[in-house]
Nucleic acid binder design. Structure first.
Lengths: 256, 256
DNA sequence: GCAAAAGTGTTCCGACTACACCCATGC
DNA sequence: GCATGGGTGTAGTCGGAACACTTTTGC
């Protein structure tokens, strides 16, 4: 952060970097973090997002993204973590920063506030394993996984944040192995295909070609164990080989 | 932004979303914007970044990215614009948000401040046309274009921000036509090649192949006007056709 | 046997690579 | 002429798309 001294002290000598605003000219902010948590329902092949029901003004009665305000001494990531651990139990949560919304008038509370406090929101997103999560519902708070297609009008500018989160999720799936963080330890190739199809859309690729490409990467280890799910030929279970993936890091468009 | 009411009022009925912090538990922030402004010196084929010399504590005497603190009623983008228009004259400035740094202890002023004010930085980046810019130097402030390779240790975490900005610039060049915002109205194909080579590195592609690919996109109009620069065959001047580019939008990896 | 799902192979085609080669100018 | 930089063409190769075909299971 670069800027003039925050105290408009009468320093002698050179002129300060800019015509100095007085301290009160600077906006005072509360900083919030909002999280876009995605999950894939592998049963029904639906992309889910975690929403919580608001019970306070403003937007009381609206669904919103899980979030909270940053406390004294707390990092942004820690605040995001705290907002989530109160609502969901999940291991291995890797949050990634999305975007920061900070314009005036994005939060109705700004108007009501005599001290002209601004509200800024830093958003984060993550993809978590559906089976590993447990919602902490206590009958009072509303916490739910919403299929992406059925998300209602959300509080604040959360629909906008969500839209942006989707874009990032899709592109992330294409160049990073997030999918394997979300799949179980061992999985079939069509599990992977289903996951990609669910997030990217049914027609993102032919199954056989996807399969061939994926195997050619050499990052999947065939456990030789077969699994049979109803009719059809049993499938091999594969395991993700993180080490083999290392050299592929930062290479663009690895998958798809 | 989602969070409990900011006033810990004794509301009857339901329990609020979280165990409420009192108002004073929430961190108070000043929000800064920092800008990473790139430019290409087409004469010497160097990638430049705009730096300003700090004259205040902290980091007095250090170079830093141009930035400022957000004022009352001012949007983040407006603050970034203001920080820049005081230092540089440039048309058509499209700022793009980079990243938000907001951890505690990233700014030494936090420690000195009795009120425990936190400093958060939202960074933006842009690529501008070198010839269209004029630095506003008044002999007191230091403002300069630094070749990327010669950037010194900067104030705050600005080196980190700059590094991230470089990454984004390079990837942006690959999938968006920013290059044509920076080139003059008409330009030769080797002007384009030089620009890409300067930003991405000399060995990013063969010249003839780059040329062929670029023309095949059908977004360049040949003005048939020839230009001769010293020895060698005169080159055709081309013009970027923004309309023809429209359908290519959001397609990945258009260039290179 | 038949349907269903997994897995393999093949053909076609377009794209990228790496050059070699031709063209138009200044000197 | 010849050096210099602009511009064109081509042969080889790699990889993706589409789709046919084989394999192994449940019923």
């Amino acid at each position: 952060m670069t800027k003039p001294a925050d105290k408009p002290a009468n320093k002698p000598g050179y002129r300060p970097l800019e015509s100095l605003p007085t301290t009160t000219d600077l906006a005072d902010f509360k900083v919030g973090v909002d999280t876009v948590i995605f999950s894939v329902d592998t049963e029904q092949n639906r992309l889910l997002v975690l929403l919580v029901m608001r019970h306070e003004k403003p937007y009381s009665g609206y669904w919103s993204l899980p979030g909270t305000l940053v406390r004294v001494g707390e990092s942004l990531e820690a605040a995001a973590d705290r907002a989530l651990t109160e609502k969901i139990r999940v291991n291995n949560l890797y949050l990634e920063q999305l975007f920061t919304f900070g314009g005036p008038d994005r939060d109705p509370r700004e108007a009501e506030d005599a001290y002209n406090i601004r509200y800024l929101s830093v958003s984060y997103f993550a993809l978590v394993r559906y089976e590993d999560t447990a919602l902490i519902a206590d009958g009072v708070r509303g916490i739910a996984w919403y299929p992406l297609s059925q998300v209602p009008k959300l509080a604040f500018d959360h629909n906008q944040i969500l839209t942006y989160g989707c874009k990032r999720l899709r592109s992330k799936l294409e160049y990073s192995p997030v999918a394997f963080d979300v799949l179980p330890e061992t999985f079939t190739l069509s599990d992977v295909y289903q996951l990609y199809a669910t997030v990217l859309g049914e027609d993102f690729s032919d199954y056989s070609n996807f399969r061939t490409r994926l195997l050619k990467l050499g990052i999947l280890e065939d456990t030789k164990v077969k699994t049979s799910r109803g009719a059809g030929r049993p499938a091999s279970l594969y395991r993700f080989d993180a080490e083999a993936f290392q050299p592929l890091k930062d290479k663009p468009m690895v998958f798809l």
